[in-house]
Design a protein around this nucleic acid. Sequence first.
DNA 1: ATCTGTCGGATTGTCCGACAAAATGCCGCC
DNA 2: GGCGGCATTTTGTCGGACAATCCGACAGAT
Lengths: 242, 242
Amino acid sequence: MDIFEPVQVDPAYRRIAAAVEEKVMAGTLKDGDPLPGEVHLARQFAVNRSTVREALRELQSKGLITRRPGSKRLRIAHPRTADVASGVSRALALGGVTFYEVWEAMMIVEPQTAALAARKRDADQLEELTQLIARFEAAGGNSREAVATVVDFFRALARSSQNEVLVLAQAPLTRLLSPTLAQMIDQVPQARTRIIEAQRKLLAAIGKGDGEQARIWMEKHIRDFRRGYELAGISADDQVTV
Amino acid sequence: MDIFEPVQVDPAYRRIAAAVEEKVMAGTLKDGDPLPGEVHLARQFAVNRSTVREALRELQSKGLITRRPGSKRLRIAHPRTADVASGVSRALALGGVTFYEVWEAMMIVEPQTAALAARKRDADQLEELTQLIARFEAAGGNSREAVATVVDFFRALARSSQNEVLVLAQAPLTRLLSPTLAQMIDQVPQARTRIIEAQRKLLAAIGKGDGEQARIWMEKHIRDFRRGYELAGISADDQVTV
DNA sequence: ATCTGTCGGATTGTCCGACAAAATGCCGCC
DNA sequence: GGCGGCATTTTGTCGGACAATCCGACAGAT
Protein backbone atom coordinates (compact mmCIF):
# COMPACT_ATOMS: atom_id res chain seq x y z
CA MET A 1 0.00 0.00 0.00
CA ASP A 2 2.81 2.43 0.86
CA ILE A 3 4.10 2.85 -2.65
CA PHE A 4 4.23 6.60 -2.52
CA GLU A 5 6.36 8.50 -0.14
CA PRO A 6 5.00 11.82 1.06
CA VAL A 7 5.89 14.32 -1.60
CA GLN A 8 8.08 17.05 -0.24
CA VAL A 9 8.17 20.46 -1.79
CA ASP A 10 10.81 22.43 -0.03
CA PRO A 11 10.19 26.15 -0.03
CA ALA A 12 12.53 28.27 -2.11
CA TYR A 13 14.58 29.57 0.79
CA ARG A 14 15.39 26.06 1.83
CA ARG A 15 16.44 24.98 -1.61
CA ILE A 16 18.63 28.02 -1.96
CA ALA A 17 20.30 27.22 1.33
CA ALA A 18 20.74 23.64 0.21
CA ALA A 19 22.29 24.77 -3.06
CA VAL A 20 24.88 26.88 -1.31
CA GLU A 21 25.58 24.20 1.26
CA GLU A 22 26.10 21.69 -1.49
CA LYS A 23 28.67 23.93 -3.15
CA VAL A 24 30.46 24.38 0.13
CA MET A 25 30.58 20.68 0.91
CA ALA A 26 31.76 19.90 -2.59
CA GLY A 27 34.61 22.32 -2.14
CA THR A 28 33.51 24.60 -4.97
CA LEU A 29 33.15 27.36 -2.43
CA LYS A 30 36.16 27.33 -0.17
CA ASP A 31 36.76 28.65 3.30
CA GLY A 32 37.07 32.40 3.22
CA ASP A 33 35.59 32.90 -0.20
CA PRO A 34 33.41 35.99 -0.28
CA LEU A 35 29.76 35.46 -1.06
CA PRO A 36 28.14 37.68 -3.68
CA GLY A 37 25.88 40.43 -2.36
CA GLU A 38 22.25 39.70 -1.59
CA VAL A 39 20.87 41.43 -4.67
CA HIS A 40 23.31 39.58 -6.84
CA LEU A 41 22.30 36.27 -5.31
CA ALA A 42 18.66 37.17 -5.67
CA ARG A 43 19.18 37.75 -9.38
CA GLN A 44 21.13 34.53 -9.80
CA PHE A 45 18.50 32.41 -8.09
CA ALA A 46 15.75 34.42 -9.81
CA VAL A 47 14.13 35.08 -6.49
CA ASN A 48 13.38 37.98 -4.22
CA ARG A 49 15.97 39.37 -1.88
CA SER A 50 13.82 38.59 1.16
CA THR A 51 13.85 34.96 0.15
CA VAL A 52 17.62 34.95 -0.22
CA ARG A 53 17.98 36.52 3.17
CA GLU A 54 15.99 33.75 4.82
CA ALA A 55 18.28 31.22 3.22
CA LEU A 56 21.30 33.15 4.44
CA ARG A 57 20.06 33.17 8.02
CA GLU A 58 19.79 29.42 7.90
CA LEU A 59 23.29 29.00 6.55
CA GLN A 60 24.57 31.47 9.06
CA SER A 61 23.22 29.57 12.02
CA LYS A 62 24.80 26.41 10.66
CA GLY A 63 28.10 28.26 10.73
CA LEU A 64 28.61 27.80 7.00
CA ILE A 65 28.74 31.49 6.28
CA THR A 66 29.93 34.21 8.57
CA ARG A 67 30.78 37.82 8.63
CA ARG A 68 34.17 39.08 9.67
CA PRO A 69 33.69 41.48 12.55
CA GLY A 70 32.90 44.95 11.38
CA SER A 71 32.40 43.89 7.82
CA LYS A 72 29.36 43.64 5.65
CA ARG A 73 30.42 40.96 3.28
CA LEU A 74 29.43 37.45 4.08
CA ARG A 75 32.10 34.83 3.60
CA ILE A 76 32.10 31.09 3.34
CA ALA A 77 33.31 29.59 6.58
CA HIS A 78 33.94 26.18 8.02
CA PRO A 79 32.02 25.66 11.24
CA ARG A 80 34.30 25.97 14.21
CA THR A 81 34.23 23.60 17.12
CA ALA A 82 32.50 26.17 19.28
CA ASP A 83 29.58 26.53 16.86
CA VAL A 84 28.86 22.86 16.75
CA ALA A 85 29.53 22.17 20.40
CA SER A 86 27.01 24.75 21.51
CA GLY A 87 24.36 23.04 19.41
CA VAL A 88 25.19 19.69 20.94
CA SER A 89 25.10 20.94 24.50
CA ARG A 90 21.81 22.67 23.83
CA ALA A 91 20.35 19.44 22.57
CA LEU A 92 21.66 17.47 25.51
CA ALA A 93 20.44 19.99 28.05
CA LEU A 94 16.99 20.04 26.47
CA GLY A 95 17.03 16.26 26.34
CA GLY A 96 17.12 16.25 30.11
CA VAL A 97 20.51 14.62 30.29
CA THR A 98 21.69 14.10 33.83
CA PHE A 99 24.99 15.01 35.35
CA TYR A 100 25.75 11.34 35.73
CA GLU A 101 25.39 10.67 32.03
CA VAL A 102 27.83 13.43 31.18
CA TRP A 103 30.23 12.20 33.78
CA GLU A 104 29.97 8.65 32.50
CA ALA A 105 30.71 9.80 28.98
CA MET A 106 33.73 11.71 30.21
CA MET A 107 34.95 8.61 32.03
CA ILE A 108 34.87 6.84 28.71
CA VAL A 109 36.37 9.47 26.50
CA GLU A 110 38.88 11.43 28.54
CA PRO A 111 41.21 8.79 29.91
CA GLN A 112 41.76 7.26 26.50
CA THR A 113 42.17 10.69 25.00
CA ALA A 114 44.84 11.42 27.57
CA ALA A 115 46.59 8.19 26.72
CA LEU A 116 46.58 9.11 23.07
CA ALA A 117 47.81 12.59 23.84
CA ALA A 118 50.75 11.14 25.71
CA ARG A 119 51.79 9.27 22.61
CA LYS A 120 51.20 11.97 20.06
CA ARG A 121 51.75 15.33 21.70
CA ASP A 122 54.37 17.72 20.36
CA ALA A 123 56.49 20.29 22.15
CA ASP A 124 54.16 23.22 21.58
CA GLN A 125 51.23 21.46 23.12
CA LEU A 126 53.29 20.43 26.11
CA GLU A 127 54.21 24.04 26.57
CA GLU A 128 50.57 25.11 26.32
CA LEU A 129 49.52 22.61 28.96
CA THR A 130 52.25 23.86 31.26
CA GLN A 131 51.07 27.42 30.91
CA LEU A 132 47.49 26.44 31.53
CA ILE A 133 48.43 24.90 34.84
CA ALA A 134 50.17 28.10 35.77
CA ARG A 135 47.12 30.06 34.76
CA PHE A 136 44.93 27.89 36.93
CA GLU A 137 47.17 28.46 39.91
CA ALA A 138 47.13 32.17 39.22
CA ALA A 139 43.35 32.22 39.01
CA GLY A 140 43.11 31.92 42.76
CA GLY A 141 39.68 32.78 44.09
CA ASN A 142 38.30 33.76 40.70
CA SER A 143 36.18 30.70 40.04
CA ARG A 144 35.07 31.82 36.59
CA GLU A 145 38.63 32.11 35.44
CA ALA A 146 39.52 28.87 37.15
CA VAL A 147 36.77 26.98 35.36
CA ALA A 148 37.72 28.51 32.03
CA THR A 149 41.25 27.30 32.60
CA VAL A 150 40.17 23.79 33.41
CA VAL A 151 38.07 23.69 30.27
CA ASP A 152 41.00 24.98 28.26
CA PHE A 153 43.22 22.36 29.79
CA PHE A 154 40.89 19.59 28.71
CA ARG A 155 40.67 21.05 25.26
CA ALA A 156 44.39 21.48 24.87
CA LEU A 157 44.81 17.91 25.97
CA ALA A 158 42.28 16.70 23.43
CA ARG A 159 44.09 18.66 20.74
CA SER A 160 47.31 16.96 21.76
CA SER A 161 45.73 13.67 20.76
CA GLN A 162 45.95 14.94 17.19
CA ASN A 163 42.42 13.73 16.68
CA GLU A 164 39.92 16.38 15.69
CA VAL A 165 37.01 14.04 16.31
CA LEU A 166 37.95 13.73 19.96
CA VAL A 167 38.31 17.49 20.26
CA LEU A 168 34.80 17.92 18.99
CA ALA A 169 33.38 15.10 21.06
CA GLN A 170 34.83 16.49 24.21
CA ALA A 171 33.86 20.13 23.83
CA PRO A 172 30.19 19.74 24.74
CA LEU A 173 31.05 17.68 27.79
CA THR A 174 33.19 20.29 29.46
CA ARG A 175 30.70 22.93 28.46
CA LEU A 176 27.93 21.08 30.24
CA LEU A 177 30.07 20.47 33.25
CA SER A 178 31.40 23.96 33.73
CA PRO A 179 28.44 25.64 35.45
CA THR A 180 28.46 23.07 38.21
CA LEU A 181 32.23 22.96 38.20
CA ALA A 182 32.27 26.61 39.20
CA GLN A 183 29.88 25.84 42.01
CA MET A 184 32.07 23.01 43.19
CA ILE A 185 35.29 25.02 43.14
CA ASP A 186 33.60 27.64 45.23
CA GLN A 187 32.24 25.24 47.79
CA VAL A 188 34.81 22.49 48.11
CA PRO A 189 38.05 23.89 49.51
CA GLN A 190 40.30 21.02 48.56
CA ALA A 191 39.07 20.93 44.98
CA ARG A 192 41.62 23.42 43.74
CA THR A 193 44.65 21.59 45.07
CA ARG A 194 43.38 18.24 43.82
CA ILE A 195 42.87 19.65 40.36
CA ILE A 196 46.34 21.06 40.32
CA GLU A 197 47.81 17.79 41.44
CA ALA A 198 45.98 15.85 38.77
CA GLN A 199 46.96 18.29 36.08
CA ARG A 200 50.63 18.13 37.13
CA LYS A 201 50.65 14.35 37.09
CA LEU A 202 48.91 14.35 33.74
CA LEU A 203 51.41 16.78 32.34
CA ALA A 204 54.30 14.67 33.63
CA ALA A 205 52.89 11.49 32.14
CA ILE A 206 52.20 13.16 28.83
CA GLY A 207 55.63 14.71 28.84
CA LYS A 208 57.20 11.31 29.28
CA GLY A 209 54.95 9.85 26.63
CA ASP A 210 53.60 7.42 29.19
CA GLY A 211 50.09 6.74 27.88
CA GLU A 212 49.16 4.30 30.62
CA GLN A 213 50.02 6.73 33.40
CA ALA A 214 48.16 9.49 31.63
CA ARG A 215 45.11 7.29 31.36
CA ILE A 216 45.23 6.35 35.01
CA TRP A 217 45.61 9.90 36.21
CA MET A 218 42.88 11.17 34.02
CA GLU A 219 40.60 8.52 35.40
CA LYS A 220 41.41 9.63 38.91
CA HIS A 221 40.90 13.22 37.87
CA ILE A 222 37.42 12.58 36.52
CA ARG A 223 36.51 10.40 39.46
CA ASP A 224 37.56 13.26 41.67
CA PHE A 225 35.14 15.49 39.87
CA ARG A 226 32.33 13.26 40.91
CA ARG A 227 33.43 13.19 44.51
CA GLY A 228 33.72 16.95 44.42
CA TYR A 229 30.24 17.31 43.07
CA GLU A 230 28.87 15.09 45.76
CA LEU A 231 30.64 17.12 48.40
CA ALA A 232 29.15 20.25 46.89
CA GLY A 233 25.72 18.72 47.28
CA ILE A 234 25.06 18.23 43.59
CA SER A 235 23.14 15.08 42.84
CA ALA A 236 24.17 12.82 39.99
CA ASP A 237 20.56 12.76 38.85
CA ASP A 238 20.38 16.51 38.44
CA GLN A 239 19.85 17.55 34.90
CA VAL A 240 22.61 19.56 33.32
CA THR A 241 21.93 23.04 32.06
CA VAL A 242 23.54 25.48 29.73
CA MET B 1 46.59 49.49 24.06
CA ASP B 2 43.63 47.13 23.59
CA ILE B 3 41.36 48.58 26.21
CA PHE B 4 38.24 48.51 24.11
CA GLU B 5 36.58 45.38 22.89
CA PRO B 6 34.94 45.53 19.49
CA VAL B 7 31.45 46.92 20.00
CA GLN B 8 28.79 44.54 18.81
CA VAL B 9 25.26 45.51 17.97
CA ASP B 10 23.20 42.47 17.16
CA PRO B 11 20.62 43.06 14.48
CA ALA B 12 16.99 42.72 15.43
CA TYR B 13 16.44 39.30 13.87
CA ARG B 14 19.25 37.89 15.96
CA ARG B 15 17.93 39.33 19.18
CA ILE B 16 14.49 38.00 18.43
CA ALA B 17 15.91 34.55 17.84
CA ALA B 18 17.87 34.83 21.05
CA ALA B 19 14.75 35.86 22.95
CA VAL B 20 12.83 32.82 21.77
CA GLU B 21 15.77 30.52 22.38
CA GLU B 22 16.09 31.85 25.88
CA LYS B 23 12.44 31.08 26.61
CA VAL B 24 12.87 27.58 25.25
CA MET B 25 15.97 26.85 27.28
CA ALA B 26 14.35 28.24 30.40
CA GLY B 27 11.45 25.87 29.91
CA THR B 28 8.88 28.64 29.54
CA LEU B 29 8.18 27.32 26.06
CA LYS B 30 7.92 23.58 26.21
CA ASP B 31 8.32 20.90 23.61
CA GLY B 32 5.32 20.81 21.32
CA ASP B 33 3.98 24.21 22.28
CA PRO B 34 2.61 25.98 19.22
CA LEU B 35 4.28 29.24 18.29
CA PRO B 36 2.09 32.26 17.59
CA GLY B 37 1.70 33.20 13.95
CA GLU B 38 4.24 35.41 12.25
CA VAL B 39 2.07 38.52 12.22
CA HIS B 40 1.33 38.06 15.88
CA LEU B 41 5.00 37.69 16.69
CA ALA B 42 5.80 40.72 14.57
CA ARG B 43 3.35 42.78 16.59
CA GLN B 44 4.68 41.48 19.89
CA PHE B 45 8.28 42.27 19.04
CA ALA B 46 7.19 45.53 17.40
CA VAL B 47 9.01 44.61 14.25
CA ASN B 48 8.22 43.74 10.66
CA ARG B 49 7.15 40.30 9.63
CA SER B 50 10.18 39.91 7.36
CA THR B 51 12.41 40.44 10.35
CA VAL B 52 10.55 37.85 12.37
CA ARG B 53 10.83 35.39 9.52
CA GLU B 54 14.60 35.72 9.45
CA ALA B 55 14.71 34.96 13.14
CA LEU B 56 12.47 31.95 12.60
CA ARG B 57 14.74 30.54 9.91
CA GLU B 58 17.63 30.70 12.31
CA LEU B 59 15.74 28.92 15.06
CA GLN B 60 14.50 26.38 12.58
CA SER B 61 17.96 25.41 11.47
CA LYS B 62 18.96 24.99 15.09
CA GLY B 63 16.12 22.55 15.43
CA LEU B 64 14.46 24.59 18.16
CA ILE B 65 11.27 25.07 16.19
CA THR B 66 9.84 22.74 13.62
CA ARG B 67 6.77 22.17 11.57
CA ARG B 68 4.85 18.94 11.72
CA PRO B 69 4.65 17.50 8.24
CA GLY B 70 1.78 18.93 6.30
CA SER B 71 1.10 21.57 8.87
CA LYS B 72 1.54 25.29 8.83
CA ARG B 73 1.98 26.01 12.47
CA LEU B 74 5.45 26.16 13.86
CA ARG B 75 5.95 24.41 17.14
CA ILE B 76 8.62 24.45 19.73
CA ALA B 77 10.77 21.37 19.43
CA HIS B 78 13.71 19.84 21.14
CA PRO B 79 16.52 19.15 18.69
CA ARG B 80 16.64 15.49 17.84
CA THR B 81 19.82 13.54 17.65
CA ALA B 82 19.69 13.51 13.86
CA ASP B 83 19.60 17.33 13.64
CA VAL B 84 22.63 17.78 15.77
CA ALA B 85 24.58 14.85 14.42
CA SER B 86 24.34 16.13 10.88
CA GLY B 87 25.85 19.42 11.97
CA VAL B 88 28.70 17.63 13.68
CA SER B 89 29.49 15.41 10.73
CA ARG B 90 29.39 18.40 8.41
CA ALA B 91 31.90 20.18 10.59
CA LEU B 92 34.16 17.17 10.78
CA ALA B 93 34.04 16.53 7.05
CA LEU B 94 34.84 20.17 6.32
CA GLY B 95 37.59 20.04 8.89
CA GLY B 96 39.34 17.48 6.73
CA VAL B 97 39.09 14.74 9.31
CA THR B 98 40.60 11.49 8.13
CA PHE B 99 39.12 8.07 8.21
CA TYR B 100 41.70 7.06 10.76
CA GLU B 101 40.62 9.73 13.20
CA VAL B 102 37.02 8.61 13.03
CA TRP B 103 38.05 5.03 13.45
CA GLU B 104 40.23 5.88 16.42
CA ALA B 105 37.36 7.72 18.07
CA MET B 106 35.13 4.72 17.53
CA MET B 107 37.74 2.47 19.06
CA ILE B 108 37.55 4.63 22.14
CA VAL B 109 33.82 5.08 22.41
CA GLU B 110 32.16 1.95 21.11
CA PRO B 111 33.71 -0.85 23.15
CA GLN B 112 32.99 0.91 26.41
CA THR B 113 29.53 1.76 25.24
CA ALA B 114 28.95 -1.89 24.49
CA ALA B 115 30.18 -2.80 27.96
CA LEU B 116 27.75 -0.34 29.48
CA ALA B 117 24.94 -1.61 27.31
CA ALA B 118 25.56 -5.12 28.55
CA ARG B 119 25.02 -3.94 32.08
CA LYS B 120 22.04 -1.71 31.53
CA ARG B 121 20.03 -3.04 28.61
CA ASP B 122 16.42 -3.99 29.04
CA ALA B 123 14.35 -6.64 27.30
CA ASP B 124 12.95 -4.37 24.61
CA GLN B 125 16.36 -3.28 23.48
CA LEU B 126 17.59 -6.83 23.39
CA GLU B 127 14.67 -7.66 21.16
CA GLU B 128 15.44 -4.71 18.90
CA LEU B 129 19.05 -5.79 18.50
CA THR B 130 17.93 -9.30 17.63
CA GLN B 131 15.65 -8.03 14.92
CA LEU B 132 18.33 -5.78 13.51
CA ILE B 133 20.63 -8.74 13.03
CA ALA B 134 17.86 -10.52 11.19
CA ARG B 135 17.32 -7.45 9.06
CA PHE B 136 20.99 -7.34 8.20
CA GLU B 137 20.94 -10.99 7.12
CA ALA B 138 17.85 -10.31 5.06
CA ALA B 139 19.46 -7.33 3.37
CA GLY B 140 21.57 -9.64 1.25
CA GLY B 141 23.15 -7.89 -1.69
CA ASN B 142 21.44 -4.56 -1.00
CA SER B 143 24.41 -2.70 0.39
CA ARG B 144 22.44 0.47 1.15
CA GLU B 145 20.03 -1.44 3.30
CA ALA B 146 22.88 -3.40 4.86
CA VAL B 147 24.71 -0.24 5.86
CA ALA B 148 21.54 1.31 7.24
CA THR B 149 21.09 -1.76 9.38
CA VAL B 150 24.62 -1.66 10.71
CA VAL B 151 24.17 1.98 11.63
CA ASP B 152 20.89 1.18 13.34
CA PHE B 153 22.55 -1.63 15.22
CA PHE B 154 25.19 0.70 16.58
CA ARG B 155 22.57 3.21 17.52
CA ALA B 156 20.34 0.71 19.23
CA LEU B 157 23.35 -0.52 21.12
CA ALA B 158 24.21 3.00 22.22
CA ARG B 159 20.65 3.51 23.35
CA SER B 160 20.91 0.36 25.40
CA SER B 161 23.63 2.02 27.41
CA GLN B 162 20.89 4.29 28.76
CA ASN B 163 23.19 7.22 28.21
CA GLU B 164 21.90 9.87 25.87
CA VAL B 165 25.31 11.52 25.67
CA LEU B 166 26.82 8.41 24.18
CA VAL B 167 23.98 8.11 21.69
CA LEU B 168 24.67 11.60 20.51
CA ALA B 169 28.43 11.18 20.47
CA GLN B 170 28.20 8.07 18.39
CA ALA B 171 25.73 9.22 15.77
CA PRO B 172 28.17 11.37 13.76
CA LEU B 173 30.76 8.61 13.74
CA THR B 174 28.59 6.03 12.06
CA ARG B 175 27.28 8.67 9.72
CA LEU B 176 30.79 9.50 8.59
CA LEU B 177 31.69 5.88 8.24
CA SER B 178 28.66 4.74 6.29
CA PRO B 179 29.60 5.89 2.78
CA THR B 180 32.82 3.94 2.85
CA LEU B 181 31.16 1.11 4.72
CA ALA B 182 28.88 0.59 1.74
CA GLN B 183 31.89 0.51 -0.53
CA MET B 184 33.55 -2.05 1.68
CA ILE B 185 30.54 -4.34 1.90
CA ASP B 186 30.33 -4.33 -1.86
CA GLN B 187 33.98 -5.09 -2.40
CA VAL B 188 35.00 -7.36 0.43
CA PRO B 189 33.11 -10.66 0.21
CA GLN B 190 33.81 -11.87 3.72
CA ALA B 191 32.72 -8.58 5.28
CA ARG B 192 29.10 -9.58 5.59
CA THR B 193 29.70 -12.80 7.45
CA ARG B 194 32.20 -11.18 9.78
CA ILE B 195 29.75 -8.45 10.65
CA ILE B 196 27.06 -10.97 11.38
CA GLU B 197 29.36 -12.98 13.58
CA ALA B 198 30.41 -9.91 15.55
CA GLN B 199 26.83 -8.78 15.98
CA ARG B 200 25.78 -12.22 17.19
CA LYS B 201 28.57 -12.40 19.73
CA LEU B 202 27.79 -8.90 20.86
CA LEU B 203 24.15 -9.73 21.28
CA ALA B 204 25.00 -12.84 23.25
CA ALA B 205 27.35 -10.96 25.56
CA ILE B 206 24.85 -8.18 26.07
CA GLY B 207 22.08 -10.68 26.66
CA LYS B 208 24.12 -12.32 29.40
CA GLY B 209 25.01 -8.93 30.85
CA ASP B 210 28.66 -9.72 30.32
CA GLY B 211 30.20 -6.28 29.87
CA GLU B 212 33.74 -7.50 29.44
CA GLN B 213 32.84 -9.86 26.63
CA ALA B 214 30.78 -7.16 24.95
CA ARG B 215 33.72 -4.79 25.12
CA ILE B 216 36.10 -7.32 23.65
CA TRP B 217 33.82 -8.25 20.80
CA MET B 218 33.08 -4.68 19.96
CA GLU B 219 36.78 -4.02 19.84
CA LYS B 220 37.24 -6.88 17.42
CA HIS B 221 34.30 -5.64 15.42
CA ILE B 222 35.73 -2.16 15.01
CA ARG B 223 39.19 -3.51 14.28
CA ASP B 224 37.60 -5.62 11.60
CA PHE B 225 36.18 -2.51 10.04
CA ARG B 226 39.65 -1.19 9.58
CA ARG B 227 40.90 -4.38 8.03
CA GLY B 228 37.92 -4.38 5.73
CA TYR B 229 38.61 -0.85 4.64
CA GLU B 230 42.18 -1.71 3.88
CA LEU B 231 41.08 -4.69 1.84
CA ALA B 232 38.71 -2.42 -0.06
CA GLY B 233 41.64 -0.18 -0.89
CA ILE B 234 40.57 2.73 1.28
CA SER B 235 43.47 4.50 2.89
CA ALA B 236 43.32 5.50 6.53
CA ASP B 237 44.50 8.95 5.55
CA ASP B 238 41.58 9.55 3.23
CA GLN B 239 39.35 12.33 4.36
CA VAL B 240 35.84 11.39 5.27
CA THR B 241 32.93 12.90 3.41
CA VAL B 242 29.25 13.35 3.94
C1' DA C 1 55.19 59.45 2.41
C1' DT C 2 51.73 58.83 5.80
C1' DC C 3 47.63 60.34 7.85
C1' DT C 4 43.01 62.50 7.71
C1' DG C 5 38.65 64.15 5.96
C1' DT C 6 35.31 63.65 2.58
C1' DC C 7 32.43 61.80 -1.09
C1' DG C 8 29.89 58.47 -4.04
C1' DG C 9 28.64 53.78 -4.67
C1' DA C 10 27.46 49.38 -2.90
C1' DT C 11 25.33 46.57 0.64
C1' DT C 12 22.78 45.54 4.62
C1' DG C 13 18.93 45.92 8.06
C1' DT C 14 14.41 46.95 8.32
C1' DC C 15 10.03 48.38 6.80
C1' DC C 16 5.56 48.49 3.99
C1' DG C 17 2.14 46.54 1.23
C1' DA C 18 0.36 42.82 -1.60
C1' DC C 19 -1.23 38.26 -3.37
C1' DA C 20 -1.75 33.26 -4.34
C1' DA C 21 -1.83 28.82 -2.23
C1' DA C 22 -2.54 26.07 1.47
C1' DA C 23 -4.25 24.97 6.13
C1' DT C 24 -7.70 25.87 9.80
C1' DG C 25 -11.88 26.59 11.73
C1' DC C 26 -16.68 27.00 11.59
C1' DC C 27 -21.25 25.91 10.11
C1' DG C 28 -24.91 23.88 8.24
C1' DC C 29 -26.36 19.34 6.60
C1' DC C 30 -26.99 14.42 6.65
C1' DG D 1 -22.08 12.46 15.68
C1' DG D 2 -19.77 12.65 11.36
C1' DC D 3 -18.98 15.15 7.01
C1' DG D 4 -18.62 18.36 3.10
C1' DG D 5 -18.08 23.13 1.98
C1' DC D 6 -17.04 27.82 2.64
C1' DA D 7 -14.84 31.84 5.02
C1' DT D 8 -10.73 33.04 7.54
C1' DT D 9 -5.98 32.76 8.75
C1' DT D 10 -1.31 31.91 7.80
C1' DT D 11 2.53 31.12 5.07
C1' DG D 12 5.63 31.76 1.03
C1' DT D 13 7.06 34.96 -2.06
C1' DC D 14 7.19 39.21 -4.37
C1' DG D 15 8.17 44.22 -5.39
C1' DG D 16 9.77 48.46 -3.80
C1' DA D 17 11.69 51.76 -0.40
C1' DC D 18 14.90 54.15 2.88
C1' DA D 19 18.39 55.00 6.43
C1' DA D 20 22.72 53.38 8.14
C1' DT D 21 27.03 52.00 7.23
C1' DC D 22 30.85 49.98 4.96
C1' DC D 23 34.23 50.32 0.97
C1' DG D 24 37.26 52.36 -2.05
C1' DA D 25 39.10 56.32 -3.89
C1' DC D 26 40.69 60.80 -3.85
C1' DA D 27 42.28 65.15 -2.29
C1' DG D 28 44.36 67.84 1.36
C1' DA D 29 47.24 68.36 5.53
C1' DT D 30 51.33 67.21 8.37
